[in-house]
C-alpha cells in the first residue's frame, strides 16, 4: 500500500517532503547556533536509530536528519523531546507538549554568529540574543528568517535574512586618555567607514559615518575608546536569495535597543497575516512588502513600539538587488 500523508501537517512538524517517496528528513533547530555538545549524542542516536546514520548541517545552523521512514515520525518526535526541552523550552519557547515534535517550521531557526563568547570583534552575546528572539517569535507558521550577528562584518549573513540583527557598539572616547596615535583613525579609514579623525590631536567620531563596529576600542592602546555597556543593534530587513529578485537587506533601524528589536519582530506576524496573498502556496515577506510598500510595513513594525531615544528609523529602503535579465545581458 502506498504512503498516504497530509504533507502540510508533516512539513509543519518540521519534516521535509523529500526526493525519496518513503523517507522524510527531520529539521532540528539550534537557536543561536550554539549548544552543549552532549546534545549531539541524541542527534546521533536519532540518525542511527531512525534515519540513515547521516546528518546534514544546514546554513541556518540546524541539523537535518535524513532517511527517516514516514511512519517513524511519532516515535522520532518522542525521542526528540529532551532536545526540545533543552534547546527550546529552557530558553523560554512556549511548547505545550514536547513529545509531539516541533509545532511549527515556517519561522526558521534563529541563527547567530559565534558572538562575543569567542570572537573579539563581536559587540554582544549573539547566541543569547538569538535565543531570546526565538522565544519571542517561535512557534510560528509564517516563513520568517532571522539571524543575529555581533558586528558589521556580518559573518552570519544577516543581510540575506528577512531580519538581520547586527550588534552595534556605542563607542565613547575619554579625551583625557587619547594620545593622538591615530591607530583608530587609520584602521577606521582603511577597514571601516572613515568615521574618525583627529581634531586638535584627539580622535573624534562622526556619528553619521560610525556604524558601531567597535574596532576603535580594539585598536586603542590606551583604553581611551570604550563601549557604552548599553547594547545597541542595527536591523537590516528583507534581504533574500531566491529565483526572482535576490538582494541584500537594507537598514531599517540603527542604534535600537533590544526591547525595540523584540517588539518589532513580534509585530511582523500581524502584518503578514493581514497582507499575505493567500492565493499562492506561500508568499515570502519581502514580496509582500514589495506589493504593499515600505511605509505601511514600517508603520506596522513600529506599531506600539517605544523607540529608545538613540534609535533611528530609515525613511526609505534602498535595495541593490538584481532582477534576472537573461534576454538583456546573457549570450547564448
Amino acid at each position: 500500500m502506498s504512503t498516504d500523508l497530509n504533507t502540510k501537517l508533516i512539513m509543519r512538524n518540521a519534516y521535509r517532503i523529500t526526493s525519496d517517496r518513503r523517507h522524510t528528513c527531520l529539521r532540528v533547530r539550534v537557536p543561536g547556533g550554539h549548544l552543549e555538545a552532549r546534545h549531539l549524542s541524541l542527534i546521533q542516536h536519532i540518525a542511527d536509530t531512525y534515519g540513515n546514520g547521516t546528518v546534514h548541517i544546514t546554513t541556518r545552523q540546524g541539523f537535518e536528519i535524513p532517511g527517516i521512514p514516514y511512519e517513524m515520525i511519532p516515535e522520532v518526535n518522542r525521542a526528540l523531546a529532551p532536545l526540545l526541552e533543552a534547546l527550546e523550552v529552557a530558553i523560554g519557547v512556549p511548547l505545550d507538549d514536547t513529545t509531539q515534535g516541533y509545532p511549527a517550521a515556517g519561522t526558521r531557526n534563529v541563527a547567530a554568529c559565534i558572538g562575543n563568547r569567542v570572537c573579539p570583534f563581536a559587540n554582544n552575546d549573539t547566541t543569547a540574543l538569538a535565543q531570546r528572539i526565538e522565544a519571542t517569535i517561535f512557534p510560528n507558521h509564517y516563513h520568517v528568517k532571522v539571524a543575529v550577528t555581533g558586528c558589521p562584518n556580518d559573518c552570519i549573513k544577516a543581510h540575506l535574512q528577512d531580519f538581520g540583527i547586527i550588534g552595534q557598539a556605542a563607542v565613547e572616547i575619554d579625551a583625557a586618555r587619547c594620545i593622538g596615535c591615530e591607530a583608530c583613525v587609520t584602521n577606521c579609514r582603511k577597514r571601516v567607514t572613515g568615521a574618525l579623525e583627529l581634531q586638535n590631536m584627539i580622535a573624534v567620531r562622526d556619528a553619521q559615518r560610525c556604524i558601531g563596529c567597535g574596532e576603535c576600542v580594539l585598536k586603542c592602546p590606551t583604553g581611551a575608546w570604550s563601549r557604552n555597556p548599553h547594547k545597541f543593534f542595527r536591523m537590516v530587513i528583507l534581504g533574500r536569495t531566491g529565483k526572482k529578485n535576490p538582494r541584500l537587506a537594507a537598514t531599517f533601524l540603527e542604534w535600537a535597543a533590544e526591547p525595540v528589536i523584540l517588539a518589532v519582530l513580534r509585530n511582523v506576524y500581524k502584518f503578514i497575516d493581514e497582507h499575505i496573498d493567500r492565493s499562492l502556496p506561500k508568499e515570502h515577506l519581502g514580496y509582500i512588502v514589495d506589493r504593499i510598500g515600505y511605509p505601511a510595513f514600517r508603520d506596522a513594525l513600529l506599531d506600539g513600539v517605544a523607540l529608545n531615544p538613540q534609535a533611528r528609523v530609515a525613511e526609505r529602503l534602498d535595495f541593490h538587488g538584481y532582477w534576472h535579465t537573461a534576454d538583456g545581458i546573457m549570450q547564448w
Binding site: 562575543n116 554582544n124 555581533g150 567597535g214 583604553g223 563601549r227 555597556p229
Partner: peptide, 13 residues
Amino acid sequence: RLPGRGRFSDQDA
C-alpha cells in the same frame, strides 16, 4: 572595575 568597559564586549576594564 568599570563594567563593560574592557577591550572586548561584556568584559570589564
